[in-house]
Amino acid sequence: MENDHNDHQHCGDDSDHRHCLEMFNRLSEYLDNELDDITCREIEQHVEKCVPCFSCLQTLKQTVALCKQTTNKPVPKEFSRKLRELIQNIPKTTNP
């Protein structure tokens, strides 16, 4: 990744920190099923032991789920009418 993350304090020693950050950086890819089996298992094993990463995974998962539930607003009728009028009046020269 682009940055060092020396102040991440989830786990104990330096190598734990680095591993923790590596896992943290890949949580979205994990949620999107974009990782190979080995890395998936590595993340699963990590979050079993690291409570902050487990919590981060769950909150991130819920964030994505909420985003996906976002509903669409209706198009204002007046705008829709104007849009159709505009399309209707496009000169033939610019038609496809």
């Binding site: 682009e2 940055n3 993350h5 102040d7 991440h8 304090q9 989830h10 950050l21 950086n25 902050p52």
Partner: peptide, 8 residues
């Protein structure tokens, strides 16, 4: 940056 989101 990712650092913004990592607990200090």
């Amino acid at each position: 940056s990712l650092e913004e989101f990592i607990p200090k």
